[in-house]
C-alpha cells in the first residue's frame, strides 16, 4: 500500500504528506534512533513514540517511506514543517505501536 492509502484509513491522521505516493514494503517499530538506523529497512513504515526533531533526519537518511507516531503522540509544529520541507511523510495513530502495525496492509 502507499502512504496516501494509509493516510486515508480510519485511525490515521496526517501530519505531513509531501511524498504520499511512496509504497510501504515493511514495518519497523522502535524508539532508539541509532537502533532504527541500524535495523530499519528502506521503504518501510517506521512506528515510534519518539517525536523530537531528530526523527526527521533519521527517517530521511534511513530512507523510510513514512513515520507513524503511535499512542496519540503529537508532533511540534516546527518539526512538522521541517518534515514537510525535507520530504518526510508523518502520520499519527492513537493506538499502541503493535496495534497500529496490525492495521497496515503490506
Amino acid at each position: 500500500m502507499t502512504v496516501n492509502e494509509l493516510a486515508a484509513m480510519p485511525g490515521f491522521k496526517t501530519v505531513s504528506l509531501p511524498d504520499g505516493d511512496r509504497e510501504i514494503n515493511n514495518i519497523y517499530i522502535g524508539d532508539l534512533l541509532s537502533w532504527v538506523m541500524g535495523r530499519a529497512k528502506a521503504d518501510g513504515a517506521w512506528i515510534t513514540i519518539m517525536s523530537n526533531i531528530n526523527i526527521v533526519a533519521v527517517a530521511s537518511l534511513a530512507d523510510v517511506a513514512c513515520i507513524i507516531l503511535a499512542e496519540g503522540v503529537t508532533l511540534d509544529s516546527t518539526v512538522a514543517q521541517t518534515a514537510e520541507m525535507k520530504g518526510v511523510n508523518v502520520l499519527t495513530s492513537d493506538l499502541p505501536a503493535y496495534e497500529t502495525a496490525m492495521l497496515l496492509k503490506i
Binding site: 524508539d31 532508539l32 534512533l33 541509532s34 537502533w35 538506523m37 541500524g38 519518539m50 523530537n52 531528530n54
Partner: peptide, 15 residues
C-alpha cells in the same frame, strides 16, 4: 532522552 546514546553509533558505521 533524545533517542541517541544507545551505543550503536560506531557499530552502525561499521555495519
Amino acid at each position: 532522552s533524545l533517542g541517541f546514546g544507545a551505543g550503536m553509533g560506531l557499530p552502525n558505521m561499521k555495519r
